[in-house]
């Protein structure tokens, strides 16, 4: 009973703040609403018996990626730049297409995603079980992801440097 209340409350929060993300004109408010949406999604993950991924979602998404977004928005001072209005035909087509997409997707989920009963027994998702799976079955993707993150760091550093600085350094 309590689970249902939590589910509906946080599902409503997630959907409402997702709508604020796409509809508000100030990008800082959009970013902060996305943080709230991620936090409520993290609660959903706890309801799905995955507490490790729930905390990981808060640490990685809400705590690091969105801080990066906020830094970029604040340092580039994007809120004073008024976004030119999207052309009405594009807005109309965008809204109708995504509404049709939403309705079609929900209809097909309700019609075809019918499940038989779950396997019995508890679902072991402790961090030790995830750690064992990461280091035994998935060790190769795990190591590749670390190299990918290194490539991302180097790429981000190179891309965000100004070209004028480089030409000043050379004598």
């Amino acid at each position: 009973m309590f689970e249902y209340v939590v589910f509906f409350f946080f599902a409503a929060v997630a959907v409402i703040f997702a709508l604020v993300v796409i509809l508000h004109r100030n990008p800082v408010v959009s970013a902060l609403s996305l943080v709230v949406s991620f936090f409520s999604l993290s609660v959903m993950y706890v309801l799905l018996d995955a507490p490790f991924l729930a905390v990981l979602q808060v640490i990685v998404y809400a705590g690091a990626i969105m801080v990066l977004f906020l830094f970029v928005i604040m340092l580039l001072n994007l809120q004073h730049m008024s976004e030119p209005a999207t052309r009405p035909i594009q807005q109309f087509l965008g809204y109708t297409t995504s509404a049709a997409f939403a309705i079609g997707l929900v209809y097909y989920v309700i019609k075809y995603a019918v499940f038989t009963a779950m396997p019995s027994g508890p679902f072991h998702t402790e961090s030790s079980a995830i750690g064992v799976a990461l280091f035994e079955s998935y060790v190769f993707p795990f190591e590749m992801v670390s190299i990918l993150l290194l490539a991302a760091i180097v790429g981000a550093l190179l891309l965000s440097g100004r070209t004028t600085v480089r030409s000043e350094v050379q004598p």
């Binding site: 997630a14 796409i22 970013a31 994007l78 030119p84 999207t86 965008g94 297409t97 997409f101």
Partner: peptide, 29 residues
Amino acid sequence: IPTQWFLILSAILFAIGVCGVLTRKNGIT
């Protein structure tokens, strides 16, 4: 909670994301 409800929530959030990509002009959004 039935799995279907989570799938419906996920479908709605995905569609909201699609709407944002199609209608906004600000790159960060």
